[in-house]
């Protein structure tokens, strides 16, 4: 799957996982920070996103530093999935 296709798929999954009812995939900037700025997500959302990666793509984020880097934006998540995802 091309990176842009993966990003669109991931946006839809994030919206569903986090119950972002008023947000559409088009509202999410793939390069914008997911936390504090951008979507304004918080630490509970971080756990939900870690779960999403585990359940949907078999990726376990156990190192806190790596988790911060991967969950920085939709694009960084998509790049990890492209590299490691099952």
């Amino acid at each position: 799957m091309k990176e842009e296709e993966l990003i669109e798929k991931l946006k839809a999954e994030i919206i569903e996982q986090l119950s972002l009812e008023d947000i559409t995939p088009a509202d999410i900037d793939a390069d914008a920070p997911l936390f504090v700025e951008g979507l304004g997500l918080d630490s509970i959302d971080a756990i939900e996103l870690t779960h999403l990666l585990d359940r949907n793509y078999g990726i376990k984020l156990e190192d806190p530093k790596a988790r911060r880097e991967v969950l920085a934006s939709v694009r960084s998540m998509a790049q990890l999935i492209a590299k490691q995802g099952k």
């Binding site: 509970i44 939900e48 870690t50």
Partner: peptide
């Protein structure tokens, strides 16, 4: 294993 937190909260 680790669970989604919201239903637990």
């Amino acid at each position: 294993e680790t669970l989604p937190p919201i239903p637990f909260i």
